[in-house]
Design a protein around this nucleic acid. Structure first.
Length: 597
RNA sequence: GGUUGUGUAGCUCAAUUGGAUAGAGCAUCUGACUACGAAUCAGAAGGUUUAAGGUUCGACUCCUUACACGACCA
């Protein structure tokens, strides 16, 4: 369809030149889809040309329209409403578009001229607690953006930066040491990540009690928080860890090992994966080297207490701490190291960080610091900043126990999908295993679509009831449309209707079929826009539009009772293309589509 | 206090980047399954796009100010 638009633009330029003797640059000839209430498929706004041409907008529209109908076979008619020239495209041209679609293989890359070598970092969990709803948005976004960029022909590496060290990790280790009694995931029957989370909560509980007691003894709140025995012990543990204390390191390895097993199970369950893992324990030392490098280059400075800072006032930011007075690293220290390591490993021309918008400032600093260091890869960094997920009850607060656990949530959506399918599904012939797979596909489809259909940069509301809905603008609705198409194709197969029918004898199309083709034709520009804006929501909207257009077509056109064989075969082929588009676009979201449901 | 993001129908979200009478879904109401899958389709109702100015042929979109909510920096 992009070809069709190119041809149209060229024709519009020629029309204006011939009729009004004015040259107009092609970018000014922006075509937009014609609104539903008017005849036609593409619209040119003529207001912008009134000055150059010196005539009214209607007159210009008339002039161009007349010329096009006489000289451009693509255009079969036109109408002018005020400054809007609506062009009707000949059905033959739409059939050409359809033929092009049909000849394009499902996974064919969509050229953008964009980056070719990309790293997408996402998920990036802490190893002291299991994944929650917020992580799900992150994981689905990261996976989907990686798929979208890959669809543009780029080589994409999915990276996971695990936050496996630091005071918060020591907290759960300490609580385990004190209260664990040698418990293991096996002995407790708890997933490793949840087990670690249990002890993190336990730390907080006991720590809080200690603080309260100190306060009762008359210690000021701020002091109590710093001097509670468990906090001091956790800090001791961190120092011991940095010093390589054998016992501490052994415990650290053991507990992180449990957590990784737990994470792996979750990742597999939600259908995301990674090509490369980074661990902050493995990059913070490299980060310290970068700080040293900055000092030598004179772009960082040392304060009297020995702490290292960078002055970013010229960049509109602040002074920023890079290394503490005691020489221990802060977040940004290890991020400098990780960035360096990533570039060494992949020599990317684009490095995407999928991180919540609460870290906007942090990411600006990271980029600015890397620039100060003169790192060539600084400009290739893109922070895909997404909004946090709220609940109907408000913000998720771990302190108040309102955090929605990822594993639990997935269980619930799958269960809801199962109930719905038992009630209204058509699953004859599927065995137990296939049924379980189907419930999983549908439950996750609902959840992923729900989280991905919203513009990433916007904060969003997670309503548990809406997330398992299956009617309207939902994942299961789109999946249903695919299953419906699959049923059509099965029946066509039984009736030996070919899907590669010759359409050249078709001259006119029913409106719903024409609209279907027009929607399908958007695929390339949709992928391009999604890649440009890092927005799976664009793809989600497309999948939904396709499903709707197909269902409309389906009710308006009776495929198997169509008397004309050529049309019947065309309708089957059109169905196949719609199914292909749904599968492809949902695939970009990381959502599978069933053959029956 | 400083920086920054968001504000659209009762609710959740769109709006092709400055274009026509601001569109979908949910919820509400009405209609459609005896030849294809009703998890569907067709229709009704629902809006001062937070407010006030400004820019222009034309503003949800850009500029200014205020308000509300959030995030970050101290």
């Amino acid at each position: 369809m992009q070809q069709l638009q190119q041809t149209l633009k060229a024709a519009l330029g020629a029309a204006i030149k011939n009729v009004f003797d004015v040259e107009v640059a092609s970018p000014q000839l922006a075509l937009q889809p014609t609104r539903k209430e008017f005849a036609g498929q593409f619209t040119l706004v003529t207001f912008p040309f009134t000055k150059a041409i010196g005539k009214g907008p209607e007159q210009i529209g008339q002039g161009i329209g007349d010329w096009l109908v006489a000289n451009e076979p693509l255009v079969s008619g036109y109408n002018v409403v005020k400054g809007f020239l609506n062009l009707e495209i000949a059905d033959a041209a739409w059939l050409d578009v359809f033929e092009q679609l049909r000849q394009t293989p499902a996974g064919a890359p969509v050229e953008t001229g964009g980056p070719q070598n990309v790293v997408v970092e996402y998920s990036s969990p802490n190893t002291n607690k299991p994944l929650h709803l917020g992580h799900l948005r992150n994981n689905f976004l990261g996976y989907s953006v990686a798929e979208i960029l890959q669809a543009t022909g780029a080589t994409v590496t999915k990276a996971n930066l695990v936050n496996d060290r630091g005071i918060h990790i020591c907290k759960s280790m300490l609580a385990y040491q004190q209260y664990g009694n040698g418990e293991t995931p096996q002995s407790a029957g708890i997933k490793g990540d949840h087990l670690a989370g249990k002890y993190y909560v336990l730390f907080e509980k006991h720590y809080r009690e200690q603080v309260k007691q100190l306060e009762a003894e008359g210690v000021a709140a701020e002091v109590a928080k710093r001097q509670a025995p468990m906090m001091l012990e956790a800090q001791d543990m961190l120092r011991a860890w940095e010093a390589g204390d054998e016992e501490v390191v052994a415990l650290w390895k053991q507990m992180n090992g449990w957590v990784y097993e737990g994470f792996d199970a979750t990742y597999q369950n939600i259908g995301v994966d990674f090509d490369k893992y980074y661990y902050e324990s493995g990059t913070y030392l490299l980060g310290k080297e970068r700080v040293e490098e900055g000092l030598q280059k004179g772009v960082f400075f040392k304060k009297d207490d020995g702490s290292v800072w960078v002055d970013l006032k010229e960049e509109g930011l602040d002074e920023k701490l890079l290394l503490r007075a005691d020489g221990t690293s802060v977040y940004i220290t290890q991020d400098l190291g990780t960035a360096e390591l990533k570039f060494q490993d992949f020599h990317y021309d684009l490095s995407v960080y999928v991180i919540a918008d609460e870290q906007n400032y942090h990411m600006q600093v990271l980029k600015a610091v890397l620039k100060k260091l003169g790192k060539p890869y600084a400009d290739a960094i893109y922070h895909l900043s997404y909004g946090m997920v709220d609940l109907p009850s408000g913000k998720m607060k771990s302190r108040e126990g309102t955090v929605v656990d990822a594993d639990e949530l997935v269980r619930e959506v799958v269960e809801a999908a199962k109930e719905a399918t038992l009630k209204k599904g058509k699953t004859e012939g599927l065995n137990e295993e296939e049924l379980a797979q189907l419930y999983h596909t549908l439950g996750l489809g609902a959840l992923k679509y729900y989280l991905l259909k919203v513009d990433p940069k916007k904060r969003m509301l997670f309503n548990p009831e809406e997330s398992v809905q299956l009617e309207g603008d939902t994942g299961p609705f789109i999946q249903y449309s695919h299953a419906r198409i699959a049923a059509i194709l099965r029946k066509a197969g039984e009736m030996s209707i070919p899907t590669n029918a010759n359409t050249s004898s078709i001259t006119t199309l029913p409106a719903s079929a024409r609209e279907m083709v027009q929607e399908l034709g958007r695929y390339q520009s949709v992928v391009q826009e999604a890649a440009r804006t890092f927005s799976p929501a664009v793809v989600g909207q497309f999948a939904y539009d396709i499903a709707r257009a197909y269902n409309r077509f389906y009710t308006e056109v009776k495929i198997f009772t169509e008397p004309n064989e050529t049309y019947r075969a065309f309708y089957v082929a059109l169905s196949a293309e719609a199914g292909k588009a749904i599968k492809a676009s949902m695939g970009l979201l990381g959502i599978q589509v069933p053959e029956r449901m």
